[in-house]
Computed example of a mutant assay.
Amino acid sequence: MTLAESVLVSIMGFSIVFGMLAFLAIVILVFSKVFPALAGKGQKQPAPQAAAPAPVVEDKSEAVAIITSVICEELNADPKELSIRGIREV
């Protein structure tokens, strides 16, 4: 197989792949337009109401432990040697 034939086969392969991708994109667009229209002809169901959000309880002990371990690892220090006075989000 010569170089020209190899290039031609590669171009044909790429064009087939991209052609099929374009075809699938068009099929997906058509389906996204057709199926909601068909579903809209039936009974309309009321939208479900959102549940009340759960109260947020912040337990920062795990975050403090992780941050302390990272600092100790970077400084090659023992956690008992450090005194972390506060952690604030930046």
Rank of each mutant, 00 (worst) to 15 (best):
P79D: 05
V90L: 12
V34S: 01
L21H: 00
Q43D: 11
I66M: 14
S69I: 00
E74K: 15
A25S: 12
I87C: 05
I16V: 14
I16M: 14
A25E: 11
S15K: 07
R88E: 15
I26K: 09
S69Y: 00
E74D: 14
S6P: 02
G40D: 11
S15G: 09
R88S: 13
R85N: 11
F23C: 04
S10C: 08
A4T: 10
I71Y: 12
M1V: 10
A4Y: 03
A47I: 12
F31R: 10
A54W: 00
A77F: 03
V27L: 12
E73S: 14
I71W: 09
C72R: 09
T68V: 04
V57Y: 06
A4F: 04
S69N: 13
M1W: 05
S69P: 00
G86A: 12
T68L: 06
A25T: 07
G86K: 06
A51E: 13
S32H: 02
L24T: 07
S83G: 02
A54N: 04
V9M: 09
L75A: 15
I28K: 10
D78Y: 00
L21E: 03
V90H: 06
V34C: 00
R85W: 00
I84Q: 04
I71P: 09
K41A: 01
L75G: 06
I87G: 01
P55Y: 01
V90N: 12
E5K: 05
A50Q: 01
T2D: 15
I87F: 06
C72P: 13
E5C: 00
A37R: 10
K80M: 07
V90D: 15
A47K: 08
V64M: 13
L21S: 02
L24C: 07
V34F: 05
F35S: 07
V57Q: 10
V34A: 04
M20E: 08
P48M: 06
D59T: 04
A63S: 14
I67C: 08
A52P: 02
I87S: 02
P55I: 01
G13A: 12
V90G: 15
V56M: 11
Q49V: 15
S83W: 07
L21W: 06
A37N: 04
P48G: 07
V9E: 15
E62L: 12
E62K: 10
T2G: 13
F14R: 11
A47R: 07
D59R: 09
A77S: 15
G19K: 05
Q45E: 13
D59N: 15
F35V: 14
V27E: 15
S15W: 10
A77E: 14
I87H: 02
V30F: 08
K33F: 05
Q43C: 01
V17F: 08
K44H: 03
M20T: 10
G42H: 01
R88I: 08
E62T: 10
G40K: 11
I11W: 09
A50T: 00
I16A: 13
I84P: 02
V30N: 01
I16E: 14
E89K: 08
L75N: 09
V56N: 04
F35Q: 10
V57F: 07
V7G: 03
G19M: 04
P79K: 04
F23T: 11
I26D: 11
G86P: 01
S61I: 06
S83A: 11
V57D: 09
S32G: 02
